[in-house]
């Protein structure tokens, strides 16, 4: 075992996929954003100079090229940059890629992988801080992947690039530099298999992406008070491993869902609804959701902190869930 950053694992996955599959190419000039990790992608350009494209600032066009190329047999990885700009490609994501297979009675496939940097990055204000994947969850036909660790990023990207379906992969901008354990030989991870990131008997916490390390920090603090959190990371929202989540709730009887998307119609809401519907008999207390409130993201630090879930807010919500019921 050694440690690797999320960003480095992401680049490893792209490199290995390009080496093993000549259909894979990259449309995107700054897959890792503008931060210090950005130069990690240099070796992709060096080793595959004719398969990495610096596109114009044309999210709709870049996404469309990826969708079309995938319909024609390629496996493009299209980076949409800051996730807030994916809205410019909304039609290509939700109304082209997502529906093509269904609309052609299963004859056409669109095996394109999209990537974007989501979340409250710090000082990004309203227009650079969004997490649009909750909205995409309402677009049937798209696989949605939200890794939280280096090993998961590697494994899920390999699966995304091999998947016959269109896949949206979201990376939280603040995850890129975080190092986590990886084994010598990283391998593909199937979609729809949740990972229990921490075992505990008292309460089930479900989280993805950056909220996973935040929940681990909260869990450590709670453990000092004898509260044992079980942290379930679904890793993929589509397909969703409902079984593992409900099985965990059947043991703990309590559920806290943590996500950075706004509350209404969000990721936490969907997971809460699923457990309420299919695991109601296991619940000893109401489900608690920890999310952003339904506001845009403000620039100023105290305002931004106020609206963003963090380990303290998560720990407080877990304590609340244990007191109730």
């Amino acid at each position: 075992m050694s440690k690797q950053s999320y960003a480095a694992a992401l680049v490893d996955a792209l490199h290995d996929a390009m080496r093993s599959d000549p259909r894979v190419s990259i449309i995107g000039g700054y897959v890792l954003g503008l931060g210090p990790q950005r130069t990690l992608t240099d070796r992709l350009k060096q080793d595959f100079p004719d398969r990495v494209f610096d596109p114009p600032t044309s999210e709709a066009g870049n996404a469309a090229v990826g969708v079309g190329a995938s319909m024609a047999g390629m496996r493009p990885f299209v980076d949409l940059g800051t996730a807030s700009f994916s809205y410019l490609a909304w039609s290509q994501l939700t109304n082209e890629a997502a529906v093509a297979h269904y609309m052609t009675n299963g004859r056409l496939t669109a095996p394109v992988t999209f990537h974007m940097l989501h979340g409250v990055r710090g000082g990004g204000a309203a227009q650079h801080s969004q997490s649009p994947h909750a909205m995409l969850w309402n677009a049937p036909g798209l696989e949605i992947v939200a890794p939280s660790t280096a090993a998961d990023a590697y494994g899920l990207i390999r699966t995304a690039l091999a998947s016959p379906n269109p896949t949206m992969l979201v990376s939280h901008a603040k995850l890129l530099g975080i190092e986590t354990e990886v084994s010598e030989k990283k391998s593909a991870i199937p979609f729809g298999v949740a990972d229990i990131k921490r075992r505990g008997r008292d309460v089930t916490v479900v989280a993805t992406s950056l909220m996973v390390p935040y929940c681990l920090t909260a869990a450590e603090a709670l453990a000092k008070d004898g509260i044992e959190v079980e942290l379930v990371d679904p890793r993929t929202l589509v397909p969703l491993d409902e079984k593992t989540i409900i099985e965990s709730v059947s043991r703990t009887g309590r559920l806290v869902v943590v996500d950075e998307c706004p509350l209404r119609g969000g990721i936490a809401s969907e997971i809460a609804a699923t457990v309420a519907e299919r695991g109601f008999k296991h619940l000893k207390a109401p489900i608690v959701r920890v999310t952003r409130p339904d506001t845009p993201v403000p620039f100023s630090l105290p305002l931004e902190n106020f609206v963003t879930p963090d380990p303290e807010k998560i720990a407080a919500a877990v304590r609340g869930a244990l007191k109730a019921g």
Partner: peptide
């Protein structure tokens, strides 16, 4: 601040002077 701190460098806006939303979205 002009926007009460909500906007930051990318969104300085002064509607009183006739500015429409200062958009950080290219286009």
């Amino acid at each position: 601040g002009l926007n009460g701190g909500r906007g930051g460098t990318i969104h300085l806006c002064e509607p009183k002077l006739g500015f429409l939303s200062t958009s950080g979205v290219v286009g």
